[in-house]
Computed example of a mutant assay.
Amino acid sequence: MSALPLLAVEGLTKHFGRAPHPVRAVEDVSFHVAPGEVLGLVGESGSGKSTIGRLVLRLIHPTSGTIRFEGEDISRRPERQLKALRRNAQMVFQDPYASLNPRLRVRDIIGEALDAHRLASGSRRTERIAELLETVGLPAAHMSRFPHEFSGGQRQRIGIARALAVEPKLIIADEPVSALDVSVQAQVINLMQDLRQRFGLAMLFISHDLDVVELMCDRIAVLYLGRIMEIGSAKDVASRPRHPYTRALLAASPKADPDAPKIRRMLTGDIPSPMAPPSGCVFRTRCPIATEECARNVPKLRSAEGDHQFACLYDMANDERPAAA
């Protein structure tokens, strides 16, 4: 892989509304994605995952922080200068039906991207659309159909074909399988893994399901209330989690150990309002091991083995306790 990250995010923050009570959707988030790498963003609804995806594509403007794509700072670049980014970074959406224009045939849904970037016209345009459909496992003859004539999984394949049309370097997949049946989920995940290998695609894979993220991704960033709680290789985060929130997500998965201690398996209560996040550690109001120290200090990301980092006064993997106040 290249030494230069394809995508580098530093101190990314997004607040909606105005002081004194803005919605703190994303707070001081930093990560990178190397060429050909898949980074998973995982967390409950309201954790800021989708907002980060929209910020990276500059569909919304950051409040502060920097977003660099291939080394170029795009954080404040005006809309008219974002065409190159939009070709190199594409999004696959959660709801495949809502993201496809119901009035257009498949040939025009996929062809719009080719037209916008002047990549193909005439007979070559038709050939390219046929190639893209076959790449995602659909017959070329289906290009004359409308979205309502397809199943959910087929519509998601069309959305993926549309994203691939401009030959991007990065795909932002925002909950791409959560609206699909379980059996279809596996098919779409397998397709995305195959496409990643075939085209050397990097991905920012957004999901609330840690099992899916572990299967799909090289590294995982666990988000809670707009902050990164833990980040590291998929293997390390899933097999040796350091943060209690990561442990709670793992415990909620279908493959969780039923004999694990109850306090480690249960995550009670609702995620707090991003308009009034808790003092100190934002997870402390739902954390089974929180102390008074957790209310006083905002834990910074600290390093474990390799590039594994976590933001907690405890190290859950080593039963470590916070230092005395």
Rank of each mutant, 00 (worst) to 15 (best):
V56H: 05
R24V: 11
E292G: 13
L104E: 07
V33Y: 01
G269T: 08
D307M: 03
V212S: 10
R198D: 06
R18Y: 08
R157G: 06
E134C: 06
L41F: 15
T268D: 10
R264I: 15
G36T: 10
A304M: 07
S121R: 11
P147H: 05
R265P: 05
H208D: 13
S123K: 14
A19L: 13
R103Y: 06
V29I: 05
E79S: 12
A116R: 11
L225T: 05
A276L: 15
G280A: 05
G46C: 09
A34Q: 15
K300I: 12
A248D: 07
I231L: 15
H308S: 06
D257Q: 12
V282D: 08
Q197D: 09
P22Y: 07
Q81D: 15
D257G: 11
L59F: 13
M143P: 00
G11L: 04
N297V: 15
G17V: 01
R198E: 14
I189F: 06
I110C: 01
V188A: 12
P5C: 12
L82A: 04
L223N: 08
R105Q: 11
Q309A: 01
M203P: 01
S303N: 14
I231P: 06
I110S: 00
L225I: 08
R77D: 00
A276T: 14
P244M: 07
E37I: 04
R240I: 05
F16G: 03
P278T: 12
S75K: 00
G11C: 04
V136N: 03
H148K: 03
E79A: 11
P139R: 01
T268P: 03
E167T: 13
V282G: 13
A141H: 10
V182T: 14
L82V: 07
R286H: 02
A311S: 07
E131G: 02
I271K: 04
A120S: 09
L301H: 01
S123V: 15
V56K: 04
R86E: 04
L201R: 12
L6C: 09
S121Y: 02
D115C: 00
A311G: 04
V9C: 07
E70I: 01
L55A: 03
L201E: 12
E127C: 04
S123M: 13
E37L: 01
R58F: 08
C287L: 05
L191W: 08
I67S: 01
R162V: 12
M143S: 13
I52V: 11
V166H: 04
E37Q: 14
L41V: 08
V23E: 07
N318I: 00
A89Q: 00
A325G: 02
Y245N: 10
